[in-house]
């Protein structure tokens, strides 16, 4: 006995739209992560009285009045 089945075709229009959506969400998330990483670097660099390795406030780093 032979059974003929219709193959599931991944190139259906529906799959294209789902792929575009998944790709878009994926790229957006990657961009978001990159932005948050960049922000972190920028904040730490401009942190002034914070030290990067432990993020602890150091009174000794405050500018001294002459």
């Amino acid at each position: 006995m032979s059974t003929r089945t219709t193959p599931l075709r991944p190139t259906h229009e529906l799959h294209k739209r789902r792929f575009s959506r998944n790709l878009g969400v994926g790229l957006t998330l990657v961009a978001f992560i990159a932005l948050v990483f960049g922000l972190t670097i920028a904040k730490v660099q401009g942190g002034g009285t914070l030290q990067a390795y432990d993020h602890t406030f150091r009174p000794a780093l405050l500018p001294q009045d002459d």
Binding site: T3, R4, T5, T6, L8, R9, H12, L14, K16, R17, R18, S20, R21, L23, G24, V25
Partner: peptide, 24 residues
């Protein structure tokens, strides 16, 4: 025998949004 393509259509219709629709 089930036609899977027909099933997909029945479940989702033609309104499956693409990424561009959310951007719009």
């Amino acid at each position: 025998m089930t036609d899977i393509r027909a099933d997909i259509h029945a479940q989702t219709g033609a309104s499956e949004p693409g990424f561009g629709d959310y951007v719009t």
